[in-house]
């Protein structure tokens, strides 16, 4: 089982180096949903390693890791999407992405594959039900019977927000967290 998993990651990394076309997406799973990110934004997929915690940062910020000699932050997408933390197993990977000229890792449950969509496949006027925060989603693609949510990285990862949280007093952080909680409660 582990063998085959390793292969997926290696094959995908291999493919990543050869990609130039637009509308290609790396797909992955978080809990039971499938998501996609623009492959051009993906630097590498690496196996999960335990990040070094940064004290007093929000829960979704799992810490920092050494990626090619750079110190990059890693966030947990389960937590970010409002789920509880999952167990990190041999399928867990960190997708290293480029967002706003910064390098950041996101922890996902499992990577699937790289898929090309034609523009017609992507539906971007979305009306969702209740189980997901839609502001991160820039569109939805349907491939056979799979439904893939395409992520808007700039919305998903806002350094402005991190900055606000880290720079303000504990009160403010709590307020922010409360607000987030409230938002989640509402949903």
């Amino acid at each position: 089982m582990k063998e085959s998993k390793d292969n997926t990651m290696n094959i995908l990394n291999q493919q990543l180096t050869n990609i130039s076309a637009e509308n290609q997406f790396l797909t992955f799973k978080v809990v039971n949903e499938e998501y996609g990110v623009d492959v051009l934004r993906v630097q590498e997929i690496i196996r999960y390693i335990k990040p070094t915690e940064i004290p007093n940062t929000p829960e979704v910020m799992k810490g920092v890791i050494n990626f090619r000699g750079e110190v990059i932050p890693v966030i947990d997408l389960r937590k970010k999407f409002g789920f509880d933390f999952g167990e990190y197993n041999e399928f867990t990977v960190i997708i290293v992405l480029e967002v706003e000229d910064k390098i950041i890792g996101v922890i996902v449950d499992q990577v699937s594959d790289i898929i090309s969509f034609s523009t017609e496949d992507i539906q971007d006027n979305l009306e969702f039900g209740s189980d997901i925060d839609t502001k991160f989603i820039k569109g939805m693609a349907k491939v056979e019977d799979r439904l893939i949510m395409l992520l808007e990285l700039e919305r998903l990862i806002s350094f402005e927000n991190f900055k606000k949280i880290n720079n303000l007093d504990t009160n403010m952080v709590l307020a922010e967290e409360n607000q987030e909680k409230e938002e989640q409660d509402e949903l």
């Binding site: 990040p51 940064i54 750079e70 932050p73 950041i104 991190f162």
Partner: peptide
Amino acid sequence: DNYTYVEGMAGATILGNGNV
């Protein structure tokens, strides 16, 4: 460089074992 300022932290460093 890749995140934001964090209160109380002057930065990070990579240790001999590759950890941060």
